[in-house]
Simulated scan of single mutants.
Amino acid sequence: MEQRLFDDFKKPASTAWQNQIIKELKGKPIEELNWEIAGAEGKPFYTQEDLPSPLPQLQIPNHQSEAFGIRNWVNYQVIEVSSEKEANEKALLALNSGATGILFQLKTVPNFDLLLKDILIHYCHVSFKIEQEAQSLVSAYEAYVKAKGIDEKEVRGFLRSHEESFLSKLPNFRFFISEEKNDNVNLGLAVLLAKTIDLVDASTTTIEEVQAWFKRIQFNLNVGESYFLEITRHRALRILVGQLANSYGFELALNDIQIASSSGQWNEPTKDEYNYLLRATTEAMTAIIGGTNAVIIQPFHHLFPKNPAQGERIARNISTILKDESYLDKTLDPSAGSYYIESLTAQLVEKTWATLQQIEAKGGLKNLSENDINALAL
């Protein structure tokens, strides 16, 4: 017979917790324990009563769970390209050492025969960042894929550029759209969604084209230092993108919403530069727990100026450690059901959506100045 160890313990009501806190405060109002961080508001404690209803389903199991774990994300190695041959050697080393994606940072359109030599692009994600010549780069990449006889559906990655947006002929190659840094989390997410609306509206005329764009956008969050808030930001963004798709009149599948998470550049002042390594790890954890699809850790080159390969290896191995030692790939959604995180997620969704409606009521992001946008956070 199963012995239920906790049957003898009564489940405390929220009023019991509140009364105990009031007693400990010795006359001070409990409201003094309420907090506010970056536009998000919280209480001193949460109970089951704070759970939103219904609870959102935010993740689905990886279809290759036996090979990659039930929870899989792309581990990107960032490589700056000055020489195609040297970049290729770095990429092959990274892919053979735990990376599952390469982000090439380019200044001009490369020779793909040299840059991608021996890289099996149907087994990994290959992405590009370039400021200019984006259209030429993608056309050259498409030509390379065709010339090599690679199945276009097996080519995965994204393009990051500030040039005019467009869709590649490669059906699983995405266009990267990133949030701007903002001290208010709700405003930051709302601006990202407003950018998406402006992009989609300017690029489409039919609902089929709208659906195609939503399935080809790689959303990016720049991960900050507030641990639980970053988890909720990732969860909220997934819900909000789904809501935005619904506002256009269609339902977007969970696996069609792709989120990347990028670390900082590690150039802020600090008393101990090795704290960057700890910060990068906790930032990656928050993104993964929040449900990201890709982790992009910038290499720690300035920490190891005489050995840049070490800075690259450490950045790459953070994901490996979180998989092989912390087993974050073994749990589908570790924050699901948390009274605090679920409640905060629902709050961010509500506030962000309200802010987005204000932006759209004023004609969209393209019609607002920076001061107009910042005023929405007040």
Results as ranks from 00 to 15, higher is better:
I321N: 08
S261M: 02
A309Q: 15
I296N: 07
D324H: 15
G290T: 02
E273M: 14
R313P: 04
T270L: 03
A287F: 01
A309M: 09
L303I: 00
A280L: 11
G291D: 02
T292K: 02
G290I: 02
G264H: 07
L278P: 05
K330M: 11
L328F: 03
G290S: 01
A284F: 04
N307K: 15
N293R: 13
K271E: 14
A260C: 07
H301V: 10
T282W: 06
E268Y: 11
I296V: 07
I318V: 09
A294P: 00
L322I: 03
I321D: 09
Q265Y: 15
Q310F: 07
P269V: 01
W266Y: 15
N267I: 11
T282I: 05
N275P: 06
V295F: 01
I259R: 10
H301D: 09
K323I: 04
E273C: 12
G290F: 02
L303W: 04
D272R: 15
V295A: 07
A284V: 04
I289D: 02
P299D: 02
Q258A: 12
A287G: 05
K271G: 15
F304H: 02
Q265F: 15
A315M: 04
Y274I: 10
W266R: 14
E325W: 11
I288P: 11
T282S: 09
L328V: 01
E325P: 10
P305L: 00
L303Q: 06
D324N: 15
I297V: 12
R316L: 05
G291F: 02
S261E: 02
S261C: 05
T286V: 06
L322T: 00
I297K: 13
P305H: 01
T292L: 04
E312A: 10
P299K: 01
R316E: 02
I314M: 05
P305V: 01
P308D: 01
S263Y: 00
P269N: 07
K306Q: 15
P308N: 00
F300L: 06
E312I: 03
K306Y: 09
T270I: 11
N267C: 12
P308L: 00
T282E: 04
S262A: 12
I318N: 08
E283H: 08
A280W: 10
A284G: 07
K323D: 08
L278G: 13
T292Y: 01
D329S: 13
Q258Y: 14
Y274Q: 10
A315F: 02
S263M: 03
Q265N: 15
T286K: 13
K306I: 04
G311Y: 09
I296H: 08
